[in-house]
Amino acid sequence: MGRYLRSLREFWSSSLAIELEYPANALIELLSVLGNLAGSVVVLALFYGRGHGLGGWSWDEALVVLGIYTLLDGFTSTLLQPNLGAIVNHVRTGSLDFVLLKPIDSQFWLSARSFSPWGLPGVLAGLALIVLAARRAGANPSLLTLLGTTLLLLCSALILYSLWFVLAATSIWFVKVWNATEVLRSTLVAGRFPVSAYPPALRTLFTLVLPVAFLTTVPAEAILGRATIPWMLASLGMAMVSLGLSRGLWRHALRYYTSASS
């Protein structure tokens, strides 16, 4: 355990050192977070013009969902994108060889090796929006509610991570799927809006197949004090299952790894 923590520290301090070589990125990423947030708010406002509602959610409640989406998007840029996006390159160039020969869990290495500080503005902006909008929506969360929300957000992060990892791991078979994770990212855009805003068929799809509902809507319900035990359990179950799936798939995939020759 200690070895893993120490490795993590070295991983992240070295990636921080790399990222700081490109300071201009900070500005670009900040602009990109703000631009995306502003755009999303404007689009959301289109739906709420002239006193209309969306899926039974008030304007402020919908902003909580958007806040959670922004938070998760920041998490994606901080950890998922830099790490899991690199798996395909590892497979393509054969540098996965070095990872596999390290006496450390290869899934851990591949998932935690890099850390990009440029996703943090998104995380912060998301948190700020959640707090602000939840307040305005009249939420007055108890300590228990806050704990529950944190747990659900953790589940969201785990589900999101597992989805990404599963897709990235398929590059062992389909070396060239270097943008499969982009597909995921673009489809998860649906999570900017409460899942009840979609037609029933899509709602089912977004709950069972592509668990967008668990990513943003369920935690948002929780902080607004509307969480129900079945949904919380479902979210927890979903997180465990997808994490288990990602581990199982990775083990299975390695049997097919042929290692790029030369």
Binding site: I18, K102, I104
Partner: peptide, 18 residues
């Protein structure tokens, strides 16, 4: 690691190998 001095990579390896 391409962008960093070898010492940084060595620190990572030391941590990984305990």
């Amino acid at each position: 690691i391409w962008d960093l001095p070898p010492l940084d990579s060595l620190r990572v390896n030391a941590a990984v190998y305990g």
